[in-house]
Nucleic acid binder design. Structure first.
Lengths: 213, 213
DNA sequence: TAGATTGTTAATCGATTAACAATC
DNA sequence: TAGATTGTTAATCGATTAACAATC
């Protein structure tokens, strides 16, 4: 479908387009022009048209874009209708919250297993799944073949576990540990989430503004 | 201190520099060259030198950068030694996890109050703080003057609450609701965290790679 | 047809990379 | 001094914006 490799900035904007289009759809908006969408999203109309045209033109000259159709196409590009099997490792505060709070389905994923090495947690339920002991990880992966893993573990454990999981067939990591995984295997995708970095950035920007005064 | 306005990409890289320098410090590394740091971080040496020079040169020709000194300077720029008062609204799964899991201190912030409108939660402790009823929010802000707010609330409530909080003197939002706040006030900083967007991006990149095969 | 808005090319802007003189 | 590595300028690259012909 794609003419050529899509640039990272464009890819990162896609989920946001998807969200806005879904909202428009819920508001029963049928069509939208790049100009109006730009106004709502705080982007330029030009950029929006450029972005959409990475995937082939599905607008209509003189009319704009059909909201529902466009939402579907972007959803397909993002793969929100897939069912990528995922496991989550580390069911502490954060792990549990991610399992319970994130809508995996909406993102084309299904959480099929949660693991933790704390015996006190094992057997308890989170997001409709029992927390399982780490010893069962290998056999679970061999049987169920999850494709991606959410890592909510301390940073010292992250790299080693990631290497092991790759051997077990995992090729995507959603990494919440305070550690940047470095994976050499080009087949493997890593999405690092650093909440601390995000908070620091907020903190920096706030001070910046105060000083300017 | 800054010569001119620092670009967003540079600012976003600062917390990551800080993390890596802290790790080097813990490994008792005294000095590091841009070349070696680049290798470790997966950046170019050129970029690192450019970035650091936004804030004035604190390297030493022929020698490199003193790890501890550089870490301190970047920490100061980021304001990690400040004590920005923050409140958290919405003590559900995610709110509690953020309160308990994120190291606010390390980011120059202090969490001083948690609020939720669910009576069942009120009074229970999270991150050493009692969860307080929303009715007390106004008086709390008037007394304690928090500067920023973490929003862990449903999207339909986000915009209205944000407006109210701005009136109460809040000028920074760390926003976890599935909604992009649009704030017109230029004094107010918003850092949107969209975990779903991040997961969708991972999902997209994984499929992309599989198709290429 | 006239008006609106896209798709697409060209121009601009900014960020990254390369190069090298300065200097420790 | 010679070697290493920065700070900084220039060159390149890529992303965003502007412009406009195509067309609904």
């Amino acid at each position: 479908m794609a003419k050529q490799s899509i640039s990272i900035p464009v890819i990162r904007r896609l989920p946001r387009y998807y969200r806005f289009l879904r909202e428009l759809e819920q508001e029963d908006v049928q069509r939208i022009s790049s100009k109006e969408l730009a106004r709502r999203m705080g982007l330029s109309a030009s950029q929006i048209r450029q972005d959409f045209n990475c995937f082939g033109g599905f607008g209509q000259q003189g009319y704009g874009y059909r909201v529902q159709e466009l939402r579907k196409v972007i959803g397909e590009i993002l793969g929100v209708d897939e069912q990528t099997g995922m496991i989550l490792i580390g069911a502490g505060n954060l792990g549990k919250a991610v399992a319970a709070h994130v809508d995996f389905k909406k993102c084309g994923c299904v959480l099929i297993g949660i693991f933790d090495d704390n015996p006190l947690l094992q057997g308890t339920m989170t997001a409709n799944l029992p927390i399982m002991p780490m010893e069962t990880l290998t056999s679970f992966c061999r049987q169920r073949r999850p494709q991606a893993a959410v890592l909510c573990i301390p940073k010292h454990a992250a790299q080693q576990l990631a290497d092991k999981l790759i051997e077990l067939g995992i090729n995507g990591f959603w990494n919440f540990s305070h550690y940047d995984l470095r994976i050499t295997n080009p087949e493997v995708t890593v999405e690092n989430v650093h909440l601390g970095d995000s908070l620091m950035t907020l903190s920096y920007c706030m001070h910046r503004k105060k000083e300017e005064t």
